[in-house]
Simulated scan of single mutants.
Amino acid sequence: MTAGTVRIIRLVHQWSSLISTVFLLLLCLTGLPLIFHHEIDEWLGYAPQAKPVLERGGKATVNEIARAALAHAPGKVLQYLAWDRDAPGLVIAYTNHAVDGPPDDAVLTAFNIADTSAAGPVGTGPMLILLKLHTDMYVGLAGKLYLGGMGLLFLIAIVSGVVLYWPFTRRLDFGSLRRNASRRVLWLDWHNLIGITTLVWAIVVGGTGVINSWAELMLMRWQATELAGMVAPYAGMPRPSQLASLDQVVTNARAAAPAMEIAFLAFPGTPFTSSHHFAAFMRGDQPLTSRLLKPVLLDGVTGEVTGAAELPIYLKALFVSQPLHFGDYAGLPLKIIWAVLDLFTIVVIGSGLYLWIARTRRRPQRAAMVPGRRA
């Protein structure tokens, strides 16, 4: 590698890192507590608790849950019903002022399947504030795409840093820390060591973060292509004035996707389906397959299945990347590892900023030492 090539790559690494530094620190600092958002919500009392289901009482039907949700939110309509695999005793109802109302206007409430009583709101408290800062900085799609751009710069900084690692450390043993050198050199050694140690994790988290920032665009593409093709025979039909029985809809969806369970049910007119159909998104029962959803479309009037298809690869990548981004796959041990690596990344970002500041301060000193140069 020539000296000129090394210099270009160093400039790419330097400026891709500097431009994204503030936002990367924001993402790392907000992402750290979000890794433990389930645990923190429970500790702070924001996680709804399910009542035990008594065998003699049985479980409430889906129709009963829906009626309870509408009674709990007068004047609102149902957009979705969701079944959280980590809280089997609850069903989460999404209500909004309109069936196509903005997601930020939706109110999420958990209901007990034991007696249809409201167990409490979902997605409230300090974790919601951190999540909004982490995902879109409270400016919607533009914020998501901007943070996605910062994520791409982060990946460029990682790749360029790896390319630079060999030329700058080829004369040193791996993990060498030159403790007798200047503070700047010692921090450079720490920066390189922690950076190369957290390399794989940084690429995984950075890459999944970029994918997550494109979620709305991916959904819009799916609606305009695969979903549009599935509902083409019903194009132009209005939303049914009388919807099919939700119990029958759920039963038919389960029959259409054996060995799968329902993750959430989208009502006609919502972004996940057409104006005439229910869409039941089914999931597997394993840690990985539970993230891979299969949509089943059902007629809004009769509840009969009208189509089922696998999601395109880009949506599968999205659904897999969302929990992976926060280490939400293997319980608390993986979350702890994610948190430690997040802290290491904060050190890498901070040390990189310190090295740049120290370098810029040295330039005037070097210039003053050049013979014959005037101050």
Score class of each variant (00 low, 15 high):
residue 209 G to S: 11
residue 209 G to I: 05
residue 211 I to H: 00
residue 212 N to H: 05
residue 212 N to S: 12
residue 212 N to P: 02
residue 213 S to R: 01
residue 213 S to V: 03
residue 215 A to S: 15
residue 216 E to A: 09
residue 216 E to R: 03
residue 216 E to N: 08
residue 216 E to P: 00
residue 217 L to W: 04
residue 217 L to D: 05
residue 217 L to C: 04
residue 218 M to C: 07
residue 218 M to W: 04
residue 219 L to W: 04
residue 219 L to I: 14
residue 220 M to N: 14
residue 220 M to G: 06
residue 222 W to K: 11
residue 222 W to G: 03
residue 223 Q to H: 13
residue 224 A to N: 14
residue 224 A to E: 12
residue 225 T to Y: 02
residue 226 E to D: 12
residue 227 L to Y: 02
residue 228 A to I: 05
residue 229 G to P: 02
residue 229 G to K: 15
residue 230 M to K: 13
residue 231 V to D: 07
residue 231 V to H: 11
residue 231 V to M: 08
residue 232 A to C: 04
residue 232 A to T: 04
residue 232 A to F: 06
residue 232 A to L: 12
residue 233 P to Q: 08
residue 233 P to D: 09
residue 234 Y to M: 11
residue 234 Y to I: 03
residue 235 A to Y: 09
residue 235 A to I: 05
residue 235 A to H: 13
residue 236 G to C: 06
residue 236 G to S: 09
residue 237 M to N: 08
residue 238 P to C: 04
residue 238 P to F: 02
residue 238 P to L: 04
residue 239 R to I: 01
residue 239 R to N: 02
residue 240 P to E: 04
residue 240 P to K: 03
residue 241 S to W: 07
residue 242 Q to F: 10
residue 242 Q to Y: 09
residue 243 L to F: 09
residue 243 L to V: 07
residue 243 L to H: 01
residue 244 A to K: 14
residue 244 A to I: 12
residue 244 A to G: 08
residue 244 A to F: 11
residue 245 S to V: 07
residue 245 S to E: 05
residue 245 S to C: 09
residue 246 L to I: 15
residue 246 L to S: 01
residue 246 L to F: 01
